[in-house]
Design a protein around this nucleic acid. Structure first.
Lengths: 339, 339
DNA sequence: GGTAGCTGTTGAAGCGCTTCGACGACCGCC
DNA sequence: GGCGGTCGTCGAAGCGCTTCAACAGCTACC
């Protein structure tokens, strides 16, 4: 039944043409008459031919694989990462590429390994730190790469991300417009700020800048995504009337803690989140949020990576504009707070 | 600086030996004198040589890549899946293998594609359904594979998993021993049962069997991992004095719902969970749990896959025995319930 | 009627590596 | 001192594919 793997020569023989013709039919790189093409395709189907990936990579000088460097470390929110990953895989597959998983543990050496051995044609990095050891390595790689995130110095690199600074501003502006005068950012765990992860800091900076501009007082506190931490953070926040939660795993805990403290949402406290829509919709009550467009960013990253073949200049950093969706958790502050 | 990629011939020339000698040094498949070996290794380092993955796969008939088929669908708990994935990647890397990500979307066709094109040397599948279309495909693949999970008919396949039936029994036995007479299993979302995912059903069967044996009444209800669902499920459970939560994402919600209903844990209600330790420890109070040894299972799967080279018989299914860790959430039932 | 220009197909030359068989050098043994 | 046996190294073959240069057969045009 299975007399060893089928090669292109088998297909050529079966179809009564040469191996190169089969190759051209499959790649479409040369005109082939309709008759021949059909004959060849029929043989391909009949024999169940799958071109040998290694041979193809060797001869064609491209593996049709891209590397996805995923963070699997402290403080990151796993479901969000997986949304990115799923989008990247989908987009890559749609473009005829497979995805090789590289963990952040391997660091720059891992990237050099997979790129150096021609295992992958390009790389996508997530969870980029402000001063990431992998960033300089990337520049020397001779393979294209795209970062999801924004390092301190993006020169010569292609980056895509949500404009988190603007997202922070947007939240403050929204709350300020509602009349809030005292807001707080409940952010990522401390470890994420310490590590210099870009998105966390950029949001914080955006919140602070907008607060200054809008004449609003803004606190910013890191937060572990566990219930006691949420409770404790809230009890220390005093007469804050609005919260901005930039921590997917903590949204639920914050709402629960508010309930525990007897503070109603949105009547006593308004809550905004920067999180994917599904997290916002799973919360009770549904939380007004700036969406994290994971699927869109993942797809964009792949597109940027693959369009590099066409060498359309250097697109540099693309920061998607944030979008705030108003749901049930934000209202003007209670009367007693508006002097 | 970079005059194109370094080939084995460059290394051979630099070291003053033949290409085959370099190959043998690198693979260790033939005795090489210490002097020559050092010379070659020095040249490898000096030139920054990385063997071309495609060429290696072509000549050596192995790609040093394994496929990991990940579920990215409704009802699965993403962080747990990622724990498995991380363990698989780690173990694979330790064995000199890279990991290619294949999503469940691609189904059997995806497996045939990556195996048929010799892209991967072996496959690991997660989230196997009772009657999974991929399982028969696997048998025809001519590449080894390991399932994390247990299909209806595991004949001829290598499977590893936690013994969920035994886990369910263990929970009931523990609660029965404490004196509980009425327990409830809060399980996976309905969609997971409908799909026929093995672990959910096996746990339920284990719970029922042990309940019968121990003379305990056991309800089993599916549960979405959102707060309102937890609240609703609990309010309908009547005078149940103990809960078994087999749903990582719902553990927190169940505890919060109990708090909301004014039922204290463990004084009024005992709670057991089947979940990874970190979920149990992040809960308030810490929940007694049967651990899901994701890291161990991931590593085991890779080991099983790679030891196939040695062809040590057919190890068949390996079900790890469950371990119950008693923490703060389980006590004998309140007096009023013990007639 | 000759030539220029297409179109469709082919053979052959690699891509960079592994591995097989061969062989020279050197060991110890009778 | 000659012979079998290791040990260490090498040349060459080939893995299955892509792609280049070449060419046969046409059409079209002057």
């Amino acid at each position: 039944m299975t007399p060893g793997p089928v090669t292109i020569a088998d297909v050529a023989r079966h179809a009564g043409v040469s191996a190169s013709t089969v190759s051209y039919v499959l790649s479409g790189k040369r005109a082939i008459s309709a008759v021949t093409r059909e004959k060849v395709l029929a043989s391909v189907r009949a024999l169940g031919f799958h071109p040998h990936a290694g041979a193809r990579a060797l001869a064609g000088n491209r593996s049709n694989i891209i590397a996805l460097a995923l963070p699997l470390r402290a403080g990151i929110n796993v479901p969000v990462v997986m949304q990115f990953a799923a989008a990247v895989v989908d987009a890559a597959r749609a473009g005829g590429y497979d995805v090789l998983l590289v963990t952040a543990d391997e660091g720059a050496a891992g990237l050099r390994r997979v790129a150096g051995s021609a295992l992958v044609d390009g790389l996508i990095l997530m969870d980029v730190e402000t001063d990431d050891e992998r960033v300089p390595a990337l520049r020397e790689l001779s393979r294209p790469s795209v970062l999801i995130g924004l390092p301190a110095d993006p020169t010569g690199l292609v980056c895509v991300d949500l404009d988190f600074a603007r997202a922070g501003e947007l939240c403050v502006e929204h709350l300020a417009a509602l009349g809030h005068r005292r807001v707080a950012l409940l952010g990522a765990p401390q470890a994420v700020y310490d590590r210099g992860t870009g998105f966390a800091r950029r949001t914080r900076d955006g919140v602070r800048a907008a607060a200054l501009r809008c004449g609003v007082h803004a606190d910013a506190v890191p937060l572990e995504p566990v219930f006691p931490a949420a409770l404790e953070a809230l009890s220390r926040l005093g007469d804050t009337t609005a919260l901005i939660v930039h921590n997917e795993g903590a949204v639920d805990h914050v709402l629960t803690a508010l309930r525990t403290l007897g503070r109603r949402v949105p009547d006593d406290v308004s809550v905004l989140a920067i999180c994917p829509d599904d997290v916002a919709l799973a919360a009770t009550p549904n939380v007004s949020n700036v969406q994290i467009p994971a699927a869109q960013l993942g797809r964009l990253a792949v597109d940027r990576l693959l369009e590099r073949d066409d060498d359309t200049g250097v697109p540099a950093a693309t920061l998607l504009p944030p979008m705030l969706t108003t749901r049930l958790s934000s209202l003007p502050p209670p009367i007693r707070s508006v002097r």
